[in-house]
Amino acid sequence: MSDTPANAPKPDYRQITSEAESLAAIDAVIASAQRTIRIFDITLARRGFNSVARSEALQKFFVAGRAHRLHIALHEPEHLERECPRLLMLLRRFPMSIEIHRTIQQARDATDPFVIADDHSVWHQLHFTQSRAIVALHSHADATPILQRFEEIWELSEPAVSATTLGL
């Protein structure tokens, strides 16, 4: 007999070949999150994080629970600072829920962006220069290795963008 509840969502694994499919897959992964969203990317460019719909989905996620978290690790956070004002507004509104880091050391070698919901759903682009990716919803087996990869990248990162502006 299985430990999975009868009403649990069934795993869904698909290959993706276009940017539009990736944006929809990222939305699906975010929608499946119940506690934590983890993101690794080069710059976050062309991932939809400045869209109204994505901003509203993230806001809904944060409002649904005080313990909800978003962790973002980027090679180049400057793009986010220039081109994602909606995400920065969420950072100001939910400063205890969002952490944005810059990768350092060996983590800078990573070239495969991904978004993970909790420990069960993932969108994973095979290389940032290609449109090929996969999405696996409600699949611990597919999400676990990517979650471990994120933890390694997070260990080799440092805080980069905060809710407050320091300096002149």
Rank of each mutant, 00 (worst) to 15 (best):
E81F: 04
I72Q: 01
E21H: 08
E76K: 09
L70R: 09
T36N: 09
S22H: 05
V52Q: 12
L90V: 00
P77H: 09
F40V: 01
F49K: 07
E76F: 14
Y13K: 14
E56K: 13
P77E: 01
R86G: 05
S55A: 14
G65Y: 08
A31R: 13
Y13I: 15
R93Q: 12
L44Q: 00
H71M: 10
T36G: 05
Q59H: 12
F40I: 05
K60Q: 15
L44T: 00
R69S: 03
E83M: 13
M96D: 15
H75W: 13
F94Y: 15
V52E: 14
Q15L: 14
C84N: 04
R93F: 02
E78C: 11
P77T: 00
D12V: 12
I72K: 00
A20K: 13
R14E: 13
E56I: 06
A67F: 13
S51R: 08
S22M: 12
P11C: 05
V63R: 10
A25F: 03
L88D: 01
R35H: 11
N50E: 01
V63C: 02
L74N: 03
R69D: 01
T43H: 05
A20T: 13
V52M: 11
L58V: 08
A24D: 11
S32A: 15
E81M: 11
I37A: 03
L58M: 12
E76R: 09
L90D: 01
R38H: 08
F49I: 05
H68N: 15
G48A: 06
K60V: 11
F49R: 03
E19C: 09
A45G: 06
N50Y: 01
T43W: 11
F61R: 03
A73P: 03
H68D: 10
I39Y: 00
P77A: 02
F61S: 04
A28L: 11
L23P: 00
L70M: 08
Q15C: 13
P95T: 05
